[in-house]
Design a protein around this nucleic acid. Sequence first.
DNA 1: TTTCACACCCACACACCAG
DNA 2: TCTGGTGTGTGGGTGTGAA
Length: 721
Amino acid sequence: MSQQDDFETPSTNAFEDALEHQSQHYEDGKPDTRSDKDASGKDEGAGSGGDDQQDIFQDLGFFIAHDESRQELEQLVSGHGGTVLSELPSGKSNKEFVVSTINASDLPTVTPTYIKTCCENNVLMKVQPFLVPYNEFRAVIDTQLQNESGEKPTAPADDASETAEQPVESPSTKPGEDKRPDADTPQPSETNGGPMASVTAESNAGSEDQGAGARRESVDSAKNSISGDESDVVKTPVAPSPPSARQPAASHNKSSFTEEEDEFILDVVRKNPTRRTTHTLFDEISHYVPKHTGNSIRHRYRVYLAKRLNFVYQVDSTGKLVRDDNGDLIKTTVLPKSLKNKFTASEDYALSVEVKKQFYRDIYQMDPDTGESLIKDINAPDGNLKGSFGAGSDERQNPGPSFKDFRVGERRGPVPREFFKKYADENPNHTENAWRDRFRKFLLTFGIDRYIEYYENEIAQSRVPQAMKNMTNRPKRPGVPTPGNYNSFAKKVKTLSQQQQQQAAAIIAANGGAIDPAALAFAIPEGDFLDEETLNFISGLRRDLSKIESAGGAAFAYPQEIAESIRNDFTNEEAQFDEIDPDKIPFPPALVTNELFMPQFFHFGSTREFLDKINEVISRDYEPSQAEKLVQDLCDDVGVRKTFSTSILTALSGDLMVFPRYFLCMFHFGSNPPMNIPGIWTREDDEMLRSGEESNIKKLTQKHGAGRIEMRKRFIASDLV
DNA sequence: TTTCACACCCACACACCAG
DNA sequence: TCTGGTGTGTGGGTGTGAA
């Protein structure tokens, strides 16, 4: 597989013909000349780098409701022959679209990415994968806001969940790319002579699904639209939050993918580009998109979303994300290698020849390239012999044929491990184990002499030789799940303990039969989660535990008078904030998500039980510099994610006395972080403290007390906030 | 009939272990 | 140390059924 195939091989089935169908279905039956032009422009556009601008949007109108890059989008539309509409389309024409990431108008709406992608490729692409589903919740909210403000109804305000985009390199076919042999090319297959893998382009043509958006289930971006948090998301190349896990269950057993979910999937892939083809990545994503299984998310990505992956974030050789000097992720259009590499014919041939040379050396103690003897003079000073003597003595006596005339025959070894180690060092495209396995399972089965002969013959005939295939016929293992099959929740539950099943069933039942994260957590194997980077962006908790740790005890050790003052404040506050009855808080509490808590959290039977355990953990004897151990214990014993407990510690300025209060108030008041609680510092509190204004300090003193203000100042001075 | 979500398949790359 | 057995899960699909 080409390393850059996703970008550089045009996905020809992605190019537009949907509108042509639409016109047949909906329009007036007039001949549409665009399709011919598109057909001719496909390859040209894809290969030309997009410099030769064409009127790809001719006859089409777009209402740009995307505030973020309105001017750019308008220029792109008009620059490519399209019409920029000054008001919302009537909905009667299938050639008019709204451009926005939110569809609150129930009109055909495409994402801004559609405009950009078409222009970058100079091709009118299929509109279907870029259609935005109608979001009736958002429409309701917009209407409410309009009613409250008395404003006229307007076009849907743009959602800011779209990540920043950059121009994509125009797709082109690279020389040296994976070239699949012709179907009639003979190949080294024992079991069938056909081509190894015919690339089956799934038919995407013929979609006239203008109503697809309206049919889809809408989701809860309404909450975000009110909070005004969207702008933050736009400005940073951070993924959209995971789609809400508390969305109403679909009326049927298959849920459509929303734009929000699509963007979430794309962002996780961008941050895990080496795992883009794996099953496990999508299974992990499914933990955060509970309406869909890993299988279906993977399918969704492969068939639809891969075309929209116009960039990924750069990773190092180990797959870890790389950041620039400012700490930002680096976008790239070059895809990193995936986890496993297919063996090519030239690799098979090179290995065959190298193994053959190894046998030749072993048998005849002669250098296969020079024909010189490898046996040192027996009287040599070091007394060592060249080469090894793995073969029988008879063969060693034999001067032997030239390497060219030598045949390996039935010989299978020995091949020292060192051979594969050295070979892997020189050919790092595969590991030592992989080279050895290729030798064992393919070369030995097919025949070394035979493959060399085949390969050289193909080259001589100016044909493209193929790699060996179909050499493995391991019997199916009875009772073992099919690899790469990440299906339904029910299947996962089957693997759980009886007690866990009962708990999961209870949660599902309490949830009206809908699967929620709490129940789902039982099905997630421990440690089977997205990488820390992804979790960070999911949780939004970017606290740096190492800072706290590196500050040693300084951040948590306070002078006696401050400690005394804080203790007094704490005692006075207890009646108001610490005597909330945990038995009145249902378990799991409403705010609990997988982003904040580990699966073992859900093993607690009640909120009280959870809080008792919290109290037990923080009562242990931790040194001031043992923040990391505390965080680890909270994770292991109570199921609080490290990122979450670190953020709480930061909000509490390390004051463990307030730790139970944080959870109690969070669950009771339904707010994370809990607001207006003494000892729990919010971002606004910190800004007020930093301002140094007398009025602000006065307010903070009333809220937190003088001792905690001193404590917080030290925390800020240590750069821990 | 078509589309799409979801289930399922299977060759094989890569790994590890025991004799 | 060599070797064979075999586990795991990637990579690239296809099959099925509801809407």
